[in-house]
Structures are given as structure tokens and as C-alpha cells.
Simulated assay, not measured.
Amino acid sequence: MNRLFEPTTAGQIALSNRVVMAPLTRNRAPNAVPTPLMATYYEQRASAGLLITEATAITHQGQGYADVPGLYAPEQIEGWKRVTAAVHAAGGKIVTQLWHVGRVSHTELQPGGGAPVAPSAIAAKTKTVLIKDGVPTFVDTSVPRALEAGELPGIVEDYRKAALAAIEAGFDGVEIHAANGYLIDQFLKTGSNHRTDAYGGSIENRARLLLEVVKAVTDAIGAARTGIRLSPVTPANDVVDADPQPLFTYVLRELARFDLAYVHFIEGATGGPREIPDRPFDYAALREAYRAAGGRAAWMVNNGYDATLAQTALDKGADLVAFGKTYIANPDLVARLKQGGPFNAPDKTTFYGGGAKGYTDYPTLATQA
């Protein structure tokens, strides 16, 4: 049997197969509150071994896009309870992705209309989403302010509280979002971190916030319910590091001290090429360094995978394979992968914002028969 469909575990989370639904921002949570429609959306996809929710803000300050969900208010926790209950009733497992966007935000989305926060006051040359006259609209991000060192313990505490809220909401665990040019990734990489204090300069200093967050979250809910997402070389959200191989080798060796559920890697450019000519990276060497340091977490790969590529990755040492955009239009993706298709094409006009159209109305193999 194709190993993609074998049961496995990620920490203490038992999975029915090795197919993972990757986080997919869909902008369908007005006022940051998960809706019953979101419960339907995730329930439809519960045949995946593991569902990872769309990125979910740990605080109002962590919000960077209109109508994305949060996990910092009672009504948000109640909304997520409907989602997790629906997924569990369908036999699935689900974790939430804990998110602080850092500089990838806009003053209209921030508390009191303030500036977004970042390791350094460097604007991200990227876009975010606001709702204008009921329509999702892409706009430039706002110039951020640099966080003071004294603010960072509070942000670490926000991650801890959000992790506890996730367990209260019924999630099987959490994924710390440390990828794609958001706050933790901004601290990691030289292009966005120009600090000269204990959180800038050396690799050890730039990785400090990430490791503090991991310790806080794992102390709160257990390492076996905690995953982390990393993207060593993606150019997403205008983030770059001058020398990513030693940076991420250090990070993974340090993460080996925590008995995490999984480590989740975006290989290459997020939603783009798996190989970036001017940003070579050796993921196999990284995995070897992690295992040599005693790291035992399930190794999750992500970016443009199909069934054939997934099997190759598993044969080469991966444990889990995450599928992103394919899951938007194929709620029963596991069944379709097993039989080699057919695969529905996604309606890109409905990716961000809206209602059921392009969200919960894609047919399954059963309804297409």
C-alpha cells in the first residue's frame, strides 16, 4: 500500500493517514470569529490524517488581514468549539496555527489604528487584505514600529495563552507559525531583523524569540501536541536571510531539545517553485542534523506535492505530506489521491472572502458519481 495512506502518529496525535491539509487563509471569519460555515468546511475535509487550520491570530495586534479568525476572545473560542466538534464527529484530527503577523498588517487592522509591530522598523514590500465596500481589496502594508525588548515577554505570553485557548476550544494541538515572513520569521532573518540587542545580530540572538515561544507553548500544553512551521528560503512577504542553511541548522538542533509532534517545512517558495536558483537549500542535510541532535518529531513536507512526489518524499525520509491549494477544491482529497483523480479545479476568485461559493460547494466523488 502507498505509504501516504498508512496510519501514523505526530507526537500524541494518532493519524489515520499521512495526508495533511495545509493552512489556507480564506477570510471568512467576520470580526475574527469562526462561523458555522467554517465548521462545515473543515468537517468536509476531515478524511485527512491531520487538518491544520488557517492561520489564527493570537491577539488583536497579531491580526494582519481582514476577516481572519482569532483565538483571544471568548466568542472566538466558542466558534472554534463548533469547528473542532464537527471535525471530531467526522473522525478527523485538527490543530490550529498560532499566528502573529508582525509587520504584515495595516493600521486599519491594528488596535487603535496603531502601527504594526516588527523586529525593526522596516516596511514589508507586500500586500494585505482589507474589506472595502464589502469587497476584499489588496493594499500595501503599513510601516511598522520596532518592538522594544520589554514587549517581547508579553508576546511570548500571548502565544502561551493562545495555546491554552486552543486546547479549551477542543483542538488536538497547535502549530506555531514561524514561516512566510510573519513575526517569528521576521526575527529569524537578516533582511527584516536589524536589531542590536539580545534579539538581533547573531543566529543565536535572532532565534531567541522562536525558542522562547516554543518553550512557553510546550510548557503550557505539552510538546507532543505542538508542531512548528518553517520556511527557510521563501520570499513570501518580502523576507530573506543572507545565509539560511546555518541559521536553520541551528534552529533545528535547538528544536531537537523539545519532543515536538512535528516540524513542517515549506520547501522553496510558498505557492511557487520548489527550487529557487538564487536561494539553494539542502533540506536533507537539515533533517540529518535534526535527527543527529536527537530530534524525533514527524517531518512534514509541503509545496506543490502530488501523490507521486509525496510517495518519493516518504521514501526519502519524510513522515507527513501537506497539501494546500488542492484541498480548496477537493474536500475528499484523500480518496481522489488514492484513485489518481479526477481533481476539481479551484475557483481563484473565491479564495479570499465570500460565503459558501468556492468554499463548501465543491463536489465530492460521491456527489459527482
Rank of each mutant, 00 (worst) to 15 (best):
E275K: 15
P232H: 04
A366V: 13
V321A: 08
V104H: 01
D219S: 14
I155D: 02
L37E: 07
A163Q: 02
V95H: 00
S142P: 01
R336M: 12
L4K: 02
T350F: 05
A14M: 11
G79V: 06
V87E: 01
L37K: 04
P69C: 12
H264Q: 10
R26A: 13
A121R: 00
D172T: 12
I58V: 10
H194V: 14
G341L: 06
T349Y: 10
Q44F: 03
G112M: 05
Y283H: 06
L230P: 01
I94A: 10
V87K: 00
A123L: 11
V143Y: 04
A285E: 06
D361W: 01
G200K: 02
G134F: 04
L314M: 09
E43L: 13
A55F: 07
A123G: 13
A57F: 04
V139G: 08
N237H: 08
L152Y: 03
Q61N: 14
N193L: 06
T56S: 06
R103F: 05
P232C: 12
T234G: 08
A48D: 03
K125Q: 14
A166T: 05
A289S: 06
A366W: 02
T59A: 12
E254I: 12
M38D: 07
E108T: 14
S202L: 11
L50F: 02
E157C: 14
A66M: 03
V87H: 01
Y41I: 11
D306M: 08
V104K: 00
Y262N: 10
V239G: 06
R296D: 15
E157D: 13
P273Y: 13
E254F: 07
L365G: 09
D241L: 05
G92Y: 00
E267W: 04
S16R: 09
K161S: 14
V139P: 01
A335C: 10
R82G: 15
N237I: 11
D319C: 10
I276D: 03
A118Q: 02
P273G: 15
K81L: 11
G354T: 09
Q12D: 15
A216G: 07
A224D: 07
M38E: 06
Y182F: 13
T218G: 05
Y327F: 15
E275T: 15
V104F: 04
A293I: 04
R229H: 09
A46C: 05
G11R: 00
A123T: 12
N31A: 15
D306V: 14
A335D: 11
T84R: 01
L109F: 05
V19P: 00
G173C: 09
A32S: 15
R82V: 15
R225S: 13
A329N: 03
L320M: 06
S105P: 02
A369H: 09
G150R: 09
P144W: 04
D347C: 11
E78K: 08
P23A: 15
F343C: 14
Q186W: 02
E267N: 07
E288D: 14
G295A: 09
D259S: 14
D140M: 10
A39I: 03
P280L: 10
A256S: 08
N2V: 13
E108F: 10
G150E: 12
V213M: 03
T35C: 08
T226F: 02
A318I: 07
Q245M: 12
T96I: 07
A198G: 10
R274G: 11
I58Y: 01
A149C: 09
A198S: 12
A285K: 02
I13T: 05
D243Y: 04
L50G: 06
N27M: 14
E148R: 13
